[in-house]
Amino acid sequence: MSLPGDSGRYGLAWLVAGLIAFVFCAHDILVRDTDWTRMMAGHPWETLARFGRPDLTLLPDLLAPALETVLMATLASFVGLVLALPVAWLGAANISPFGLISFTAGRSLMTLSRSVHEMVWALLFVSAVGLGALPGILALAVRSVGFLARTLAEAIEDVAPGPIEAIRATGGSPFQVVLFGIVPQVLPTFVGCVIFEWDINIRRSTILGLVGAGGLGLALFRQMARADYAGVAAVILVVLALILAGEIISDRARKAVI
């Protein structure tokens, strides 16, 4: 070995250990865990092929769920925006009302919102308020707060102090200081983020139906349950079209704002 000391020998040991682990994993998945008799019977290819022929007659029936999905995403983004305002106020170091306590509370709420998956939020709200679009809206709204509040809080922390000073000097109230000193400076960033979040929420809402929270996800789940693969393919097509449309709209809107 060209390397001095023992590192060469250890390297070889690691390689052997890695190989053994890989062989075990491969054996476990490919041999013990896979139904080869079913695979050999040709089912997987046939099934996959069935996805290739989407059932387009289903499209008119998907219009309502698609609309519901868009409305869920829109309402959720709006509710998320409203919820994000107080959280950002708490979590922006320079305006947090009760110092470190409220700052920590605000930042913790942001982390909580983002670290729990939207499906988990949806499960929580489905068990709380029942099936339908409402738990989906609530789940997405709560999930949106983290990102929106965080970008807003950071925009507030980066605000130029000059205009704030000027408005205080004219005798402006604390409310006017926020309205004219802070809002104009953070508005373009914030609106851009809300539009971006709306785009993401369309994506998220298409899947929330899987846990009973309405929209296209529910349609997908129903087709899946009936093993109607052509139907599933049709739903996936609609989801794809919706996400593309959302992306185009949000891109245009953000460019118009900023």
Partner: peptide
Amino acid sequence: GMIFQEFNLVERMTVLDNVVMGRLG
């Protein structure tokens, strides 16, 4: 009244709005 080195205007608002702000109190 106060006049500043860096002007301290609200950049995204019009000249008129900025001047009216002198009356915010």
